[in-house]
Design a protein around this nucleic acid. Structure first.
Lengths: 196, 196
DNA sequence: GTCCGCATCGGCCGTTCGGTTGATCCTAGA
DNA sequence: TCTAGGATCAACCGAACGGCCGATGCGGAC
């Protein structure tokens, strides 16, 4: 009703379960499909995969509309290829906006979900050790190369220094980071975003 | 004008630059602050950091409204503590919704920006090597532990197997992934999202 | 029943790594 | 001027790593 009331929208089908949704969507090829997560016969995530997932030749725009605000649903839906993710308490305005966005290939996600997504984006990097003393530039060079899997010999060659120098730098890195071996350095580098 | 027209909203201040924005926001403590990125005297990102950044005692809700759809702005704003991120072409509806969301501690991001954010979430992991033959479950166990910096001895202890077994698994991992040492395994694991 | 993949183990050997000590050079700052 | 810290290098040694060989047991597939 909400969507049909829009001047530039038309609901072309309404179905009872996921299998029907996939069949009708393939037949009618609407601009946007709205799917619930929990549906009889065929799961909403599975249906999304079939309509918009990786490997589909002409993927369609899928907006998930659900009452279940679970992280695994959110990430699952996005991995499955969903364009939008709306909670049913989002109100009619956002529903309309989400469909508009999906129709033009953009994504609208419920604000309450977005706030959690952003947490993962804005603080993706934790610093397990607050680093009592920071690494020098040269030590960071070594960290970056080590984290990419270079041996000490290769690090020395790429930095135009001797093997001894690399090992000396590594020694101070170990004490500063509190790491025991080069793989822990690599893990620290990936975690803190030095590399990646 | 758009916001003042809302029955439940009131614009309490409008300022000319970032420094004024911070001063007025601190004085009036509004429910939501709208900031542009490019402002005279004080950058929008810097202003956001001062109002909502990490370390601020009572952070305020900041929505960035800008015309510049640049990834570095988006990530910078979110890292700086922004609650929302809107492009000026988003239309009045989304502006109102973004303010509503921010007022209740949630986040609304422009659909055109969101679609790029989701790409990072849904395909954050690239697989540099398509893996001619996949790793077995046990080999993945070893990969995960190695990627966290465990030595072979520790891996053996945590998996309740002998050192020889760990080294055998590592051997097949090397050939399957084409890696030369354990740090390259770690790098592969972090890149492809096996760990992290 | 036979074969193959997987997981498990042992031993050997050369290489790399990590720790230690000590040294020189240079630059910025006290 | 002297000093502190960073970057550079050398030598040594034990431990860990990586490669290679072979072996056993177990499950499913043909």
């Amino acid at each position: 009703m909400i969507l049909d009331a829009q001047p530039d929208m038309k609901v072309v089908a309404a179905v009872a379960d996921g299998a029907e949704a996939v069949a009708e969507a393939r037949r009618l090829r609407p601009d946007v499909c709205l799917l619930d997560i929990r549906m009889p016969r065929l799961d909403g995530l599975e249906a999304t995969r079939l309509l918009a997932g990786p490997g589909v030749e002409s993927p369609m725009r899928v907006v998930i509309v659900t009452t279940f605000d679970l992280d695994e649903y959110v990430y699952g839906a996005l991995r499955a290829g969903a364009t939008g993710f709306l909670l049913k308490d989002s109100g009619p305005t956002l529903l309309v906006e989400a469909v508009k966005a999906a129709a033009s290939g953009e994504s609208l996600v419920s604000p309450s979900v977005t706030v959690r997504l952003l947490k993962h984006l804005s603080q993706p990097k934790r610093s397990p050790a607050p680093l009592p003393e920071p690494l020098t530039d040269r030590e960071l060079d070594v960290v970056r190369l080590v984290a990419r899997g270079r041996t000490n010999q290769e690090v020395a060659a790429e930095l135009f220094v001797s093997l001894s120098t690399v090992k000396t730098h590594l020694g101070s890195i170990f004490t500063k980071l509190g790491t025991r071996n080069r793989v822990e350095i690599a893990a620290w580098a990936w975690e803190s975003g030095i590399v990646g």
